[in-house]
Design a protein around this nucleic acid. Structure first.
Length: 516
DNA sequence: AAAAAAC
């Protein structure tokens, strides 16, 4: 095709140009989508070519469809045998597995493929019949899948495509033994796809043992927060629950997920909100699966306004109307910050995220800011006359001096009623709010998007593992470039543009040495 | 400092 042709054809480029089957295109069209997101534009062609893929892209930018759509296309060509699934998707939580299953249903509705969802906490009867007949798509959490395998009801030797969703989580110490065992049961040639918004270098190295000449696609550097989420730090007073209720009231928050680090904290926080007249529910792994599913459904439908949850809800969950995330605690694992706040600001929508920081959370916060390479704005929430934080904790100044990052407003500094110079939704509206931002030491990073592999010559012999090689997130030597998001030409939707410091940008090199 | 994942 000549350049002129491609220009004329531009409006039709998109999912159709990728060669997906008409049945899939029709389902995509019915969902109202016409253009792939950057990660979809990049990953789908490689999945269709049966290449192993590591896909890194920010939360809410369509990673699930990046594997779902091409897998449906691949699977439509064959036929399943009894107890021998042809593909397997592993998820870290039951809720995420369920959601992924819905995605396969939606996009596979015009294809005659069968699917089974194997998760714990639910009866095994329904799953059994489908499995017995043979499934094209098996979606599972590790424990229940192993259970089925040990009962001899599922054989994994016929799996042609393996997806490890939220891969870095699946490779952590708690999950890795199960994942290794499951992967060891997949015999012969298979294609492996790993996806996440985060991928610490040390975890990335672990991934190598599962991959064969992978293409590494990074639409943004690992641990890049979604550009559509505006996040804030909130100084938590002695009474954290009170601060939470106050934050919700003063910021006019009508719906949010509230993340706590511990299960045992959740009931108390929920009840405090309920006593304050808010419609709140709990969600964590000690609750019955029926309760978990019901609560999540109600929250999704808008029948529940506040979900107080552990990190069981941190990854992957896609609730369409989710204006706000609140971290009642700073997450212990800094990458989880990216995932938690990524529950809002999805698919181009705006979102706000507030993180409550007590004295004991400062180190954790420093980790978050290091990993995300960002300085998060400070927000002061308080009643009139009582709204400036008493900043005499000696630990703070030492901390801040060491990290060279932040300084809270001094008590003597004036606190504006609203910051009208900011486009922030916090400042919008006549509500009585107070906000103070810290100085931002470095220049605000310009919107930059990481270039990706596809257009690079396939000359490099070594896989593109800049992160794994050395430096990783801490590297400072990358040069800034103005590359557009691949797959979008010049029409990059604004929401895809990244808040990424140039020094963090990753380059990728295709390793296609075994192709063609 | 935790959570998740089978029964």
């Amino acid at each position: 095709m000549s350049p002129a042709d491609s220009m004329i054809a531009a409006p039709e480029a998109g999912f159709a140009a990728m060669g997906l089957r008409p049945e899939i295109l029709r389902a995509i069209d019915e969902m109202g989508y016409s253009q792939p997101t950057p990660i979809q534009a990049e990953a789908i062609p490689y999945v269709l070519k049966r290449t192993d893929v590591i896909g890194i892209a920010q939360t809410g930018t369509g990673k699930t469809a990046s594997f779902t759509l091409p897998m449906l296309d691949i699977l439509a060509a064959g036929r399943a045998r009894a107890r021998m699934p042809r593909s397997l998707i592993l998820s870290p939580t039951r809720e995420l597995a369920t959601q992924t299953a819905r995605n396969f249903e939606i996009y596979g509705k015009y294809l005659n493929l069968s699917m089974a969802l194997l998760i714990g906490g639910v009866g095994m009867g329904d799953q059994e019949k489908v499995l017995e007949k043979g499934v094209d798509v098996l979606i599972a959490t590790p424990g229940r899948l192993i259970d089925w395998f040990e009962r001899g009801r599922v054989l994994l030797g016929g799996v042609e495509v393996l997806v490890i969703d939220e891969a870095d989580r699946m490779f952590d110490m708690g999950f890795m033994p199960d994942v290794e065992r499951i992967v060891s049961l997949l015999l012969g040639r298979k294609q492996t796809l790993l996806f996440s918004a985060t991928m610490p270098p040390e975890v990335r190295r672990l991934a190598d043992r599962f991959l064969d000449h992978p293409i590494e696609i990074k639409v943004a550097p690992p641990a890049t927060t979604a550009a559509t989420v505006e996040d804030f730090i909130v100084e938590a007073g002695e009474d954290k629950k009170k601060t939470l209720a106050k934050l919700i009231r003063r910021e006019g928050i009508e719906k949010a997920i509230i993340f706590c680090n511990r299960k045992r904290e959740i009931g108390g926080v929920m009840r405090h909100l309920q006593r304050a007249g808010l419609n709140a529910r709990d969600l964590h792994g000690d609750l019955e699966q029926h309760h978990r599913q019901l609560t999540l459904d109600q929250f999704t439908k808008g029948e529940v306004d506040f979900l107080v949850a552990t990190d069981v809800a941190a990854r992957g969950l896609d609730v369409s109307n989710m204006p706000c995330v609140i971290n009642y605690d700073v997450p212990l694992n800094p990458d989880d910050y990216v995932h938690r706040i990524g529950r809002t600001g999805r698919a181009g929508r705006k979102g706000r995220a507030f993180t409550m920081v007590g004295p004991e959370d400062r180190k954790l916060l420093a980790n978050v800011e290091r990993v995300t390479q960002r300085n998060i704005k400070r927000l002061v929430v308080g009643e009139a006359g009582n709204d400036v934080i008493d900043d005499k904790d000696p630990g703070r100044d030492a901390d801040m001096a060491r990290t060279g990052r932040h300084r809270l407003a001094r008590p003597s500094e004036p606190v504006p009623d609203a910051d009208n110079s900011s486009p922030s939704p916090v400042a919008a509206g006549g509500r009585r709010r107070r906000r103070v931002e810290t100085e931002r030491p470095a220049a605000e990073p310009a919107p930059v998007v990481a270039a990706s592999t596809a257009r690079q010559p396939a000359k490099a012999a070594s896989p593109a593992r800049r992160d794994g090689a050395k430096g990783g997130r801490g590297s400072q030597e990358e040069k800034r470039s103005e590359s557009p998001v691949l797959g979008f030409g010049d029409d990059v939707p604004a929401f895809m543009l990244q808040k990424v410091p140039a020094r963090l940008r990753s380059r990728n090199v295709a390793d296609e040495s075994d192709e063609d």
